[in-house]
Amino acid sequence: DIDRLLPEIGHDTPEVTDPFPERIQAREAELRAVWALADLRNDRIRAVTGIEFRPLDDSIRDCVESLLSVAGVKPKVREGFIRPGAV
């Protein structure tokens, strides 16, 4: 998602791995199947409290931008990536 939301930073997305033992993976699959049947809605809480939830993409983008500018985190950049405007 970082590369999709902020392509200008050239984030080198790592390969997805699953280091958990098979028993944990099986339990996760079981729980995901249970939650897949649930109807998750936030309209009731919004109606009662007036809270407006931010889209997840906005939260991810703001978090990454904050990590870069405030915390000084240096992202791992794709090989051969040249930042726009850098010469």
Rank of each mutant, 00 (worst) to 15 (best):
V16A: 15
W35I: 06
V64R: 02
A26F: 10
A26P: 08
D12V: 04
V48C: 00
S69K: 15
G85V: 05
Q25I: 09
T17P: 03
R41L: 02
E28M: 12
I45R: 05
R4I: 13
P19H: 08
D3M: 11
P7G: 05
H11C: 13
F53A: 01
P21K: 11
C63P: 09
R23T: 12
L40K: 13
A71R: 15
D62K: 05
R61P: 03
R46I: 06
A38F: 04
I2T: 00
V87Q: 07
E65Q: 13
P21N: 08
A86Y: 02
A29Y: 08
Q25L: 15
D58S: 13
V73T: 08
V70A: 10
I82V: 14
L40E: 05
E28D: 11
L37V: 05
D1H: 02
I2D: 00
D3W: 09
P21F: 06
R41D: 06
W35R: 12
R4A: 09
D12I: 03
V16N: 12
A38G: 03
D39G: 07
L31Y: 05
E15L: 07
R44S: 09
P7Q: 02
D58P: 13
S59V: 15
L40F: 05
F81L: 12
V73G: 10
T49H: 00
T49N: 00
R44T: 03
E15V: 10
A36R: 02
P14Q: 01
L68N: 06
Q25R: 05
A29F: 07
P14M: 00
A33P: 02
E15Q: 12
D58C: 10
V70G: 15
D39R: 06
T49R: 04
I60W: 02
D39C: 05
P14N: 10
N42T: 01
G72S: 10
T13R: 08
G85Q: 03
R27L: 13
T49S: 06
D3H: 13
E28I: 14
T17Q: 14
F20S: 13
L40A: 13
D58R: 14
H11M: 06
D62I: 04
E15Y: 08
A29P: 01
G50K: 00
Q25K: 03
A38Y: 05
I60L: 01
